[in-house]
């Protein structure tokens, strides 16, 4: 029985003084790890009556990437460091400077064996999760935008079987990589996510902020924001485009009716029933999409700007991390 997106409701809300920028859940549990603007990683036991984050100190900048890899947590931050933590003891296992510039995202394969990190040095690095050894350096994104400014490599995502990795940058360029060989398999262009204002304000906004493979690996969903008039604000419509990446064909495009801002995280339902996007402008946005019909199933403004979400195995509960909030969303029975 498919989970009806209309049934999801806010089940728990934890207020914070900081900004939670990334989030991951230990499989089959209600244990969450979140990266913070205060440079700490926080461990939450959501099953507790009043969950309070336990701080794990190690980074010296915004913690923007976090992945669960088996019994380890791997985090990345604006300090360029990757840190491995023991998921049980929350103690640091290893850490090192992994990128020359600010790390934007860290993801793991579902089996927890491989880690990937993206940063504004415009390199995606693939790591052996057990040893921390570098497996591949993936270079397929220009360091400068067409307007001579530094670009940014915001997003990356593994396919469910861990054989594919997608990376996406500020100007809307996506590369799909073969994880085993580190070779590029295909590219996509999503120019609508990048707004360059040559006249009124002479700078840019936007970028690919989220990526997700469909459960069968044939499709890549790309999240961001559509073209923006006034780039002082996140006033563009939230945007998701879905591609058959091998054919380089767009199979669906979703532009929010009312929801503004960036789609900062995308997750397919485990059985592919729907695609969920989260993000927003100053307000949060939940964006449930039917890729087959091309219809928006639910578009909900909620709480505060979301930076990341974590969907559980059943597809009936998800968690959001955002500006001053951690929240739990559950589908009513």
């Amino acid at each position: 029985m498919p989970t009806d997106p209309a049934k999801f409701k806010l089940a728990k809300e934890i207020s914070r003084k900081d900004i939670l920028l990334c989030l991951a859940r230990v499989p089959e549990t209600k244990r969450l790890f979140a990266g913070s603007s205060d440079g700490c990683v926080y461990h939450f036991d959501i099953a507790a009556e009043k969950p309070e984050g336990v701080a794990m100190e190690g980074h010296t900048g915004y913690v923007t990437g976090l992945a669960v890899a088996g019994q380890q947590i791997v985090t990345g931050a604006y300090d360029g460091q990757l840190i491995w933590w023991d998921a049980g003891s929350c103690q640091k296992v290893r850490g090192f400077k992994a990128h020359d510039r600010w790390i934007r995202n860290v993801v793991a394969t579902r089996d927890g064996k491989i880690i990937a990190s993206t940063a504004d040095d415009m390199v995606c690095r693939v790591w052996d999760a057990a040893t921390g050894k570098l497996k591949h350096e993936l270079r397929g994104h220009a360091t400068l935008t067409p307007n001579h400014f530094s670009s940014m490599l915001y997003a990356c995502a593994f396919s469910a079987d861990g054989t594919l990795l997608a990376t996406g940058d500020k100007i809307g360029h996506v590369v799909v990589w073969d994880v085993a060989t580190g070779k590029p398999l295909g590219t996509l262009e999503v120019p609508e996510v990048y707004t360059w204002d040559p006249r009124a304000r002479i700078h840019s906004i936007g970028g690919i902020r989220s990526l997700a493979f469909s459960p069968d690996g044939t499709q890549v969903a790309v999240g961001g924001m559509g073209k923006v008039g006034n780039i002082d604000h996140l006033e563009g419509k939230a945007l998701v485009e879905v591609f058959n990446w091998r054919k380089q064909e767009r199979v669906a495009k979703f532009s929010a009716d009312k929801g503004k801002g960036l789609i900062t995280h995308l997750a397919f339902h485990p059985q592919g029933e729907w695609l969920l996007g989260a993000g927003g402008d100053g307000k949060g946005l939940l964006f449930f999409l039917d890729v087959i019909s091309g219809k928006i199933l639910r578009e909900e403004g909620a709480l505060t700007h979301f930076h990341k979400l974590a969907l559980d195995e059943s597809g009936t509960r998800f968690y959001t991390a955002g500006h001053n909030k951690l929240a739990v969303w559950e589908a009513a029975a």
Partner: peptide, 12 residues
């Protein structure tokens, strides 16, 4: 005038 995305604007 970076009311939104101040850090991206300043990084640029």
């Amino acid at each position: 005038d970076s009311h939104g995305q101040n850090f991206e604007t300043h990084q640029e």
